[in-house]
Nucleic acid binder design. Sequence first.
DNA 1: CGAAGAATGTTTACGGTGCTTACATTACGG
DNA 2: CCGTAATGTAAGCACCGTAAACATTCTTCG
Lengths: 181, 181
Amino acid sequence: MELLEEGGETALSLRAVARRAGVSAAAPYRHYADREALVSAVAAVGYRELGERLAAAHRAPSTPEQLASAAVAYVQFALERPALFRLMFGEPCDRDNDERAAATAAVALYVRGIVERVFPDADAEPLATAIWALVHGLAFLHLDGKLDAPSPTAVAERVTGATRALLTATNLGPGTEARKP
Amino acid sequence: MELLEEGGETALSLRAVARRAGVSAAAPYRHYADREALVSAVAAVGYRELGERLAAAHRAPSTPEQLASAAVAYVQFALERPALFRLMFGEPCDRDNDERAAATAAVALYVRGIVERVFPDADAEPLATAIWALVHGLAFLHLDGKLDAPSPTAVAERVTGATRALLTATNLGPGTEARKP
DNA sequence: CGAAGAATGTTTACGGTGCTTACATTACGG
DNA sequence: CCGTAATGTAAGCACCGTAAACATTCTTCG
């Protein structure tokens, strides 16, 4: 994790971790089958830390505003640890890694729970998809400089603005036809 | 581009393009300063092709349904050329590359135009941000297998469903208060 | 306790890669 | 027609992933 945040994904080499650990170049292979296994392991702890970060923003959001605060936490995580975030999402993932799969499922469940509480009468699945996609996309567009991020507070305002624009003004409250036909 | 789609980002090495071009290993350095420059150049043509793909879906969408078709085109582009898409967005981009900057600006303008036509009375900027983020996020979540994509039509249905859920059911038509306070 | 076996680390080696330098060739325009 | 710029070549360095053979420690169990 240190190497990743110091020098980006390129710096995360098996030889580098061996050096950092003060150990021979081949030693890491006793712990990780190959580089991809190492990367997957780092990504898995990234997912866990993202989960903690979201829970810290709000354990179980149940209003649009609380949802927005979780969205801000998501994007800030991406901006504070860009290399890790890119490692987690910007790379072909091996679905064989159970640790990794479980960790991403946890994030998915968190979002799903939010949607069920905030919009109890909506069809949760597509809406959860849409909301995760929205927040995820905001994170990536900021990361790529497609949206300039002068300060954390400016980013937070844009994220809350965007989510509010799509959600607060939405007909998804009780008694609407947001379900699939 | 051939190498990228054959073997992913890893296969796009300067030595490999030299071999493919039937030329010595150092020759590419006459055309690209380093590997990152090559990658940026490939990404730039990727942006252009994405733009063409969107224009092919609908040159100037002005209804939510036309917007949805553009969204489907965006996601399908990502799924058909995953390595290219990841190259374009999943990597730290150098803002120095003008070609690249211009190409992404074109995509941004396209989205902006859609929003201004479909929601003439809304504040275009945050809404365009939100919609791009939504579609972009959908593309990435599909790419990472966070949403399984059994068939192109299934993906298309999910994308239209998600966009419709957030847009068609939205109060953003004429005469609403979607602007920033 | 002490030995068998697992876990961990080391050394050495191979081929691939990015990149640099010095040198050769080609193309083309004044 | 020749010189300059563009392009290509050859050789070399340091790094990387990966593998195999060997050495050392740590655990565990009879």
